[in-house]
Simulated scan of single mutants.
Amino acid sequence: MVGSGTGAEAPWQGTLPTCLVDAVEETGSRLAPPGTLRVVVQRLRLTERGRPVGVHWQAGAIADVDGNLVPVELTALFDRAGDEDLLDALEVGAQQLLRDLAGQGLEAVDVLRLTRDWRRDPVAHLRWGVEIGPEEIGAVPRPDALYDPALDLRLNAPDLEALQDARRAACCSWTRRLRNWVRDALPWGR
């Protein structure tokens, strides 16, 4: 079923290559807005009539903007001049992971999705049995296999709100500590 994304999906339990983790981290720091709680980077193997014809990278994020959770599309930002090195780093890391998977008998991964939540290590999900053609990348409605930050927010709102609360608490405690340190350090603060 073309673009349906009905194939089997499984989380990757192994260790991700450091270069891939670094590339996902760089994607978030370079492309995502301040206050980002989740960055998702996805590699899709494009096919036509069952044969691979290329690769497409896309990204999205969920950000805390003035207390509101906001889905953010990042894919178009990959096309900016100067971000070829970012795509190259992602592809190098993905190829290393795909080689590791092939060594364990897990070949022909159609979709590799990497999710990096605030202050957590990235998690990889693998998907097989999905056919997405190049013409479906910008299609409306979006094929199920393509990451959609708005859908992610709707489906995972409680988890994202918990991340938002944890981030807010950490920021508040950091600013509180700084304020107290400044107050104690200044002669008129005592």
Rank of each mutant, 00 (worst) to 15 (best):
G3V: 01
G7H: 09
Q13W: 01
Q13N: 11
C19A: 13
A23R: 06
A32C: 08
P33E: 15
P33R: 15
G35H: 12
L37H: 04
V39R: 00
R43F: 02
L46M: 13
G50T: 05
G60C: 13
A61R: 08
I62D: 04
D64G: 05
V65M: 10
D66I: 09
N68Q: 14
V70A: 05
P71A: 08
L74G: 07
T75I: 12
A76R: 08
L77Q: 14
F78P: 02
F78I: 04
E84Y: 07
L86Q: 04
L86N: 00
L87N: 09
L90G: 10
Q95E: 11
D100A: 15
L101E: 00
A102W: 14
G105H: 12
V109K: 13
V111W: 08
V111H: 05
T115R: 06
R116W: 06
P122T: 05
A124M: 13
L126E: 01
G133F: 06
E135L: 14
I137H: 05
P141M: 10
P141C: 02
P143S: 02
Y147P: 02
L151N: 12
L151C: 02
R154C: 07
L163A: 10
D165I: 06
R176V: 12
R177F: 12
R177Q: 10
W181N: 12
R183C: 05
R183A: 08
A185H: 11
L186A: 02
G189R: 07
R190I: 07
